[in-house]
Design a protein around this nucleic acid. Sequence first.
DNA 1: TTATAAATGCACTTCCGTTGCATTGTATTT
DNA 2: AAATACAATGCAACGGAAGTGCATTTATAA
Lengths: 138, 138
Amino acid sequence: MKTIEQLLESKNIRVTAMRLLIYKFLAEKQVAVTLSDIENAFEKADRTTLYRTVKTFEEKAIVHQIDDGTGITKYALCEKGCNCEIETDLHLHFHCNNCNVTICLTEHKIPQIKVPDGFISEDINLVIKGVCDKCSGL
Amino acid sequence: MKTIEQLLESKNIRVTAMRLLIYKFLAEKQVAVTLSDIENAFEKADRTTLYRTVKTFEEKAIVHQIDDGTGITKYALCEKGCNCEIETDLHLHFHCNNCNVTICLTEHKIPQIKVPDGFISEDINLVIKGVCDKCSGL
DNA sequence: TTATAAATGCACTTCCGTTGCATTGTATTT
DNA sequence: AAATACAATGCAACGGAAGTGCATTTATAA
Ligand SMILES: [Mn+2]
Ligand SMILES: [Mn+2]
Ligand SMILES: [Zn+2]
Ligand SMILES: [Zn+2]
């Protein structure tokens, strides 16, 4: 089991207090978070620092960005072993219309989609909207 | 073959010069357009009017909104016979990373996606990014 | 024609993402 | 340990796009 420090070092980015805190925050959350979510969790930190920290994490494939259609960018930790640098991790994302939460369905990979002749598929974004397990009561 | 006037009347919205122009503009385009695209095409018209016209078209299921992940909302005419009011028309959208164009693949419906127990799927957004037929040269 | 409601135009606001630049902090070299 | 080099942080400001309030114009109906 790698420590967070070791993870950051392995990605060649400096270990700083802020980065450790933000990583831990993301790790605790089971859901995708917005920049504002992080901002609210660390009121003392500057928005820009949080923004750039997340961007750095993204570049280094520590987190991935999620566009769930709400218009607000969300972020979630990558799975261990995911290789976002090379190709997108093609799991589904689910957005709950009731509690407004967005989660990674990492177990559910996006099926192969056939595109018309002449088109080349490089990346796929699939977001399902509906009611989540917590809200459906099923 | 319905005229545009008849279409608008059938949806219970007034036929105005602006609406006819915007409809024709959308009909000519084979690709999804942004509000800015429309703005540039009709420099004399006010942005708000264009914005509200498109919103009206959307409510009446004349156009549908497309979130292609670029962060800028795009719009395209609905197919005749689509029933966006009741349920989303589940066709794919393709975004070309080269020419930056987004198009409706109306013939390509989104396959059935299995969601985990307890989750209820109400709507699906599927965007494929890559190289379009015009750009691929295939 | 007049009354009623919808469409349009202008101004303004809000929100998110993003950048420039000065300052602080960390690591490396001498 | 001190000096150097570079990365991280904080503050301020910007830009684009979406959205709203309100006055004015235009279309429909009485
Ligand atoms: Mn995810
Ligand atoms: Mn479409
Ligand atoms: Zn929910
Ligand atoms: Zn193209």
